[in-house]
Design a protein around this nucleic acid. Structure first.
Lengths: 229, 229
DNA sequence: GCAAAAGTGTTCTTCGTACACCCATGC
DNA sequence: GCATGGGTGTACGAAGAACACTTTTGC
């Protein structure tokens, strides 16, 4: 995790907005900076891009170092390059967001951070630089995207109940759906495989589990189908 | 237009995809490179970002130098940063697109270009580096955007006919609309002001002119209205 | 008067929305 | 047996899609 200065692109960083879902709440992963400028403040995880590294790889590396995960869902959002967005020098940052299956285990803060923490999206502390603006922009981007592409599933375990799915959309979009209409709509798309399994260990009627069928989605998409919620 | 090397960010450029509408055809403005690498090839207009210049300003400067226009509609699309996208050195490029009211007058190629030309979107020549990929990505972006935000008007003169408007959407989206349904839908939004003017100099019944009412749109948008075509 | 584009309504189908009760399970 | 969430259908209204003819103007 230590790089020689001749190995990095001095003007370009990537920052990542990592979303997770905990108990029907949308969460975002933040780090506490251990290095100047603004050591001790909360910030989005990120870092400088290496000379021999694609932008996407840079963002993936950040997330991989913290979570150990590879092959996670990740997309570029926007590039912020105001002259004075970063104190003391010019840094343009390319931002990515990621949707991961929320776990508290195995989070590593990394050498540049003294702490790492999941924050409820409604309780994010003050952030360094323009990171609050970046977060807001990304959240709007996510809200638009989640309604027109079936990416929400990335936040859930592979097997999930329809109630969990509805809760995910309610958390991300900040709205409430009618249960009957929501089920009707999502099931009519034929993207969900009903499994011969139900929840276990719940103190009420156990819900049927479903899984998202990505192959079917890709086939339907080719034929002109668009996911829309 | 000549900058000292200490005034530029050596790793970051902006490229612009400039769209215009000519006679119901979507066009894109390209330059012929006058400098190495790949002098003599067609390319997207662009250039390095200055040290004391926001990314948006860099893209605007490019367009301003070519057209003399200021305050044109312009939006960031995506940032391309593959290690080997540019020959010989690492350059990350932030791409913008612009929609302008098509004119052939006053186009200046600038010092880095030996020619400048509007190409029909279906007849774009071979482009340098990854510019073909950038153009394709931007075209997809535009197609998605134009259906959910009233940006298409930027391609038309201030006063236009409904037939011109329909032709614009058909050119951008590559589809055909039913005239009656198109008019019904667009007029019901109440975003168009019918003017007491009609076309002149046409060899058939003169069409009524309309203009887009941006203030009304912004008010409606605040109340939750979304443009959708 | 004819060529060329402007302008206009109705029907049918599809989709969105509103709404309330019984079911299965764990404790 | 009761508390908790799971699961289901129908009726109404709104919006989208299909479709053809008359009007105006320049030449």
């Amino acid at each position: 995790m230590d790089y020689r200065s001749e190995d990095i692109l001095p003007y370009i960083s990537t920052d990542s907005i990592i979303f997770g879902l905990d108990n029907g709440k949308l969460k975002v992963l933040l780090i506490k900076r251990a290095i100047e400028p603004s050591a001790g403040s909360w910030a989005l995880p990120g870092g400088f891009v290496l000379n021999q590294e694609d932008l996407d790889m840079s963002a993936r590396r950040t997330l991989q170092n913290m979570t150990g995960m590879t092959n996670m869902f990740m997309e570029q959002v926007y590039t912020f390059g105001q002259v004075n967005r970063f104190p003391g020098r010019r840094v343009v940052t390319v931002t990515y967001y990621s949707l991961i299956n929320y776990t508290l285990e195995n989070l590593k803060a990394g050498p540049d951070a003294s702490a790492i923490h999941w924050f409820d999206i409604a309780e994010v502390p003050e952030l360094v630089f323009d990171h609050r603006h970046i977060l807001d922009t990304t959240l709007n981007f996510l809200r638009a995207k989640v309604r027109t592409e079936p990416i929400g599933f990335e936040l859930l375990p592979q097997k999930f109940t329809l109630t969990e799915l509805q809760g995910l959309y309610e958390a991300v979009l900040g709205t409430v759906f009618d249960t009957r209409n929501f089920r009707k709509k999502i099931l009519k798309m034929n993207l969900l495989m009903p499994l011969d399994e139900t929840q276990v260990g719940v103190a009420h009627r156990a819900a049927r589990l479903y899984s998202f069928n990505k192959e079917t989605y890709l086939k339907l998409k080719d034929k002109g189908f668009t996911f829309e919620l």
